[in-house]
């Protein structure tokens, strides 16, 4: 899956805006948006918010967690938990942070600091993820707990981890050919199979 696809999913998450225009509700396939009354806050999907913001039709109210104190606390917890992941306030925190800080930085208080802290948290989580992937492969663990990982993070270990695990599985499957006297190697020239490629 491309990061852009993950971004697409993330853009569906709702966010509060304060519109500066009046409009009846707009009916879309994905759900209704609006109605909009100037200065009355309402909830819309992120992509609508960004599009309106770009045309200067609204002011975005950043999500509660996008605040220096909350994020600093999160960063502290993330660092303290050396082997597990802390639950993030949003399933798409990275997408939201990136889009909001990019398209609506003037609506986020202390945007520069927020940027830095989010990036810190992301780096920290990625580092943990990498080392836990390594130890999982190295110890041939049967499973790994991926609680609290967000979609973007899970997506970042694809496709390298599934491929490596598949290959490991293959190696383990062709274990004993001769010693058990069975024809494990049936995939060779003698058998035609059209799987895979």
């Amino acid at each position: 899956m491309d990061p852009d696809e993950v971004e697409f999913w993330g853009e569906k998450s709702p966010i509060q805006i304060v519109p500066t225009f009046n409009s009846p509700a707009i009916y879309l396939i994905g759900g209704d948006v609006g109605p909009f009354r100037a200065t009355i806050p309402c909830r819309v999907p992120l992509w609508v918010a960004l599009s309106l913001k770009r045309q200067q039709y609204c002011k975005i109210i950043p999500p509660e967690w996008m605040d220096v104190d909350t994020l600093t606390e999160l960063r502290r917890q993330e660092k303290a938990a050396s082997s597990s992941f802390v639950k993030m306030p949003s399933e798409h925190y990275m997408v939201e942070a990136k889009l909001l800080l990019g398209g609506a930085a003037d609506d986020v208080p202390r945007a520069d600091e927020v940027k830095t802290i989010v990036k810190d948290i992301w780096d920290n989580r990625m580092a943990k993820l990498r080392s836990s992937m390594d130890s999982m492969i190295r110890n041939s663990s049967m499973y790994a707990a991926v609680d609290n990982l967000t979609l973007m993070e899970i997506n970042s270990v694809r496709p390298i981890l599934p491929h490596a695990l598949n290959q490991l599985y293959r190696m383990k499957m062709v274990k004993r050919g001769l010693s058990q006297g069975s024809a494990t190697l049936t995939h060779t020239r003698t058998a035609v199979s059209f799987t895979g490629s």
Partner: peptide, 17 residues
């Protein structure tokens, strides 16, 4: 992204040949 790499060698697999 395709999962082509998780192949089992088959009759036409060049790598296997």
């Amino acid at each position: 992204m395709s999962l082509q790499l998780s192949y089992q060698p088959n009759y036409y697999s060049i790598d296997d040949i």
